[in-house]
């Protein structure tokens, strides 16, 4: 199965995804399928062609190694926070845990999440040097209005700038 999928990608895409294409996409916004679909590989493959799903994976990466180049809160979430807080924002549990963002009372204060992103918190690394003020604001707002969260006091780039 794995081999077959890979072979498909090979033929269709090795050529068209030349390295230069990647550079030209600087500043793009990733249009991703809805949350559930993105987490469910089988359904993703059913609804998208293999080329689309490979493109989706490759486009998840920034086009610059030192800073995130995505601009929307959703794209930023899906290329960074999601690694630990998971696609559904529920975090995860192992020998320790990643706290859920879904229904997390600490998010009541918009300044809390901004500070955590800027400076790091417990084991969580800081993102302040890889996201600019607008990006920190976008991703904070995304988290505070998704996963069942519904806060209306939006974070602005100016708020972030003041907390830096």
């Amino acid at each position: 199965m794995k081999t077959a999928i890979a072979a498909c990608f090979a033929m269709a895409f090795a050529a068209s995804l030349a390295a230069q294409d990647l550079a030209e996409t600087e500043g793009y916004e990733v249009e991703l399928p809805s949350q559930d679909v993105a987490t469910d590989k089988a359904r993703l493959l059913e609804e998208n062609s293999p080329e689309d799903s490979l493109r989706e994976i490759i486009d998840r990466f920034s086009t610059h190694p030192d800073r995130f180049t995505q601009t929307s809160g959703e794209a930023l979430y899906k290329t960074s926070c999601m690694g630990c807080h998971m696609p559904d924002g529920r975090g995860a549990e192992g020998a320790g845990h990643y706290p859920p963002l879904a229904g997390n009372p600490k998010l009541v204060s918009k300044y809390f999440i901004v500070t955590v992103l800027l400076t790091g918190y417990h084991g969580m690394p800081r993102f302040g040097d890889q996201m600019d003020d607008a990006q920190i604001a976008e991703v904070s707002n995304y988290v505070r209005t998704h996963f069942g969260n519904d806060y209306s006091d939006a974070v602005t780039a100016e708020d972030v700038s003041e907390l830096r």
Partner: peptide, 25 residues
Amino acid sequence: YPTKNYTYTWNTLTPQERIEAALEF
């Protein structure tokens, strides 16, 4: 690299997606 972003993105991918991305690049 702690201050570079690619590694965060790899951590968001599923195991199968990581293989596909590594093959592509």
